[in-house]
């Protein structure tokens, strides 16, 4: 463990807590993409299949349980409890255009042609594009609530911090995982446009409103 990865995990944790607080406090899921949350649930389920078979540390297990638990709870809030506030018209990204290519790529490009490894690779590739339905929804509605912007900023920062973690681990431990790094770079690049808006607007107390 290193400071970059710890900050990355804390940023990820913060993003999930911000999202849950937004939903619980406002009792609304307006502006939140249920499709992105479904993709995140798929990512965590596919990545943490080894939850019960390989024990890394208490921290690792607790975080995995928390991530899986909260993402399914978020889906429950969106599609059941606060269903009335879910904006399905604007959450119209065709996720099959993500899942099929990512699934195919995981078969073709992986570290080892073994079931668990391919499923892990699929989760890595899928995570890098899982935010697209959410960003697409914001571009369609033309704006994002400030709390949703904080959620996205924390979520985007987590993988950016993981990139720093991989640089550190390369020099400190000689650890290098090309698949995770390339997917992490793609994932972080997808947030750049949003990061720019967040820093130039939200930090000055304005709301993010894209030209619709």
């Amino acid at each position: 463990m290193n400071i970059f990865r710890l900050c990355g995990d804390m940023s990820h944790l913060a993003a999930i807590i911000i999202l849950l607080l937004k939903m619980w406090k406002t009792r609304s899921v307006a502006g939140i993409s249920g499709k992105s949350q479904i993709l995140f649930a798929t990512v965590f389920t596919a990545r943490y299949l080894d939850l019960f078979t390989s024990f890394i540390s208490i921290y690792n297990t607790c975080m995995k349980v928390f991530f899986i638990g909260t993402v399914y709870f978020t889906i429950y809030l969106i599609y059941m409890k606060f269903k009335a506030t879910y904006d399905s018209n604007h959450d119209s990204f065709r996720v099959e255009f993500l899942i099929v290519p990512v699934g195919g790529l995981a078969f073709l490009v992986n570290h080892e042609f073994a079931p668990l490894e391919i499923i892990w690779t699929f989760s890595i590739y899928l995570e890098s594009v899982a935010i697209l339905p959410q960003l697409f929804m914001i571009s369609k509605t033309g704006e994002a609530e400030t709390i949703t912007s904080h959620y996205l900023f924390a979520l985007g920062s987590y993988r950016a911090l993981y990139l720093c973690n991989w640089i550190y681990r390369y020099y400190a431990e000689g650890f290098f995982d090309l698949i995770a790094v390339v997917a992490g770079v793609v994932q972080t690049i997808l947030y750049c446009d949003f990061f720019y808006l967040y820093i130039t607007k939200v930090m000055k107390g304005k709301k993010i409103s894209l030209p619709a």
């Binding site: 990865r5 995990d9 890394i56 995995k64 570290h111 080892e112 650890f175």
Partner: peptide
């Protein structure tokens, strides 16, 4: 190549 090490990252 073989797995370099267990997946210790989240």
């Amino acid at each position: 190549e073989e797995n370099q090490k267990p997946k210790d990252e989240l």
